[in-house]
Write a protein that binds this DNA or RNA. Structure first.
Lengths: 196, 196
DNA sequence: CAGGGAGGTTAGCGCTCGTTAACCTGAAGG
DNA sequence: CCTTCAGGTTAACGAGCGCTAACCTCCCTG
């Protein structure tokens, strides 16, 4: 990913603050006035950048799902053919995302139902592709794992990795690197145990 | 747990349906008219049973946290001193709850912020006690695990076990027993890997 | 058999919130 | 220097929702 050095656009500011607020108090729990206030403009000014409140949520959720899938595909493409290393890479990518974008992770499985049908279908499709990518890799590493069990295991490991929002806010733990490593070990251990 | 044979009271019906609706569409996303309709009465009739919509959510969340903690304490009291068996018992109890009361599990970590301060504090306190109970048992089984890491591991395993709402709705997997066993193995494997 | 409470009903109030309308302003461009 | 337009502003509308008021109707009980 190219490192951004230029200042974020107003649109990006809005999306970031909206994500934070939606994660904190839920989509219906946040008013447009609050979102506006969070970026220094007031209420209806948002409508110069988005057609409506729903559109912000939609863009956030589609963006999340797309980013996860794109990252997964990139790691798959960069793989040297070692399934174990590829699974480690997928885990690492997911952990990075979960640790760096906690609000988005929270939204990801919490506000999907508030989307218009078309957007929801798109997000679901992206999510499914991401899961299937994992399932295939997991089954290469653990061939004795049947497909339904592998899919359940993947969903469960996502639950494990996505638990970061519930961890003490200011990394009261071993710090970011330590937390990442702990999560990584647990994910691997969970998969191994699933296949036992 | 004593098996209930008598019909559920109207109050219990309301709580059950409210839990389902809140889990599906969020607290703010559900109107009192819908909750009423779900139990065959209409809107304001609910106010014969609850002082308000907030009270329903509060009773649900306090009930969940209390049930989890009570169950955990009971298992602790019934333990024969074998920490490994006690941990298995805790895992089993949590899985039963996650599988049998999916909507409540969903609410548990999604709508806490909608509560009045006093209720939220109570729920948080119950949750904390439940976590600490697990942390102590985990550290007996894996003494090499430092306390912060153990607490993180417990939260992550909760995330793993609470992922059941994301699994295929009608147990498309190995069935309930198989799912429970898979989750159990993964939880154990995750703890073991955390301590490695 | 009167009376009262439990548990409903419908009408409607008041507030919040998403959205639109109308207007303003500063900076860029010919 | 005038125009244009991106990006704001405030006022206000309309819908939805939580909740209350007022009323109704069984059923139980003294």
């Amino acid at each position: 990913m190219a490192t951004r050095t230029d200042a974020p656009t107003r649109r990006e500011q809005i999306l970031k603050e909206a994500a934070r607020l939606f994660a904190e108090r839920g989509f219906h729990g946040v008013g447009v006035d609050e979102i506006g206030a969070a970026v220094g403009i007031s209420g209806p000014g948002l409508y110069r950048h988005f057609p409506g409140k729903d559109a912000m949520l939609a863009e956030l959720l589609v963006g999340i799902s797309g980013q996860l899938l794109t990252g997964g595909k990139r790691r798959l493409a960069e793989s040297d053919g070692n399934p174990g290393a590829l699974l480690d890479s997928l885990i690492e990518g997911h952990i990075d995302f979960a640790l760096d974008d906690r609000p988005l992770i929270t939204l990801h499985d919490r506000e999907l139902d508030r989307l218009r049908d078309s957007d929801r279908k798109l997000v679901r499709q992206l999510q499914r592709q991401y899961v299937e990518l994992w399932v295939e890799v997991v089954r290469e590493v653990y061939p004795e794992l049947a497909e339904p069990a592998a899919r359940s295991a993947v969903h469960s490991v996502f639950g494990l990795l996505n638990s970061t929002p519930h961890l003490g806010r200011p990394g009261a733990l071993p710090g970011r690197a330590g937390t990442a490593e702990l999560l990584h070990r647990m994910a691997r251990g969970a998969f191994a145990a699933a296949a036992a």
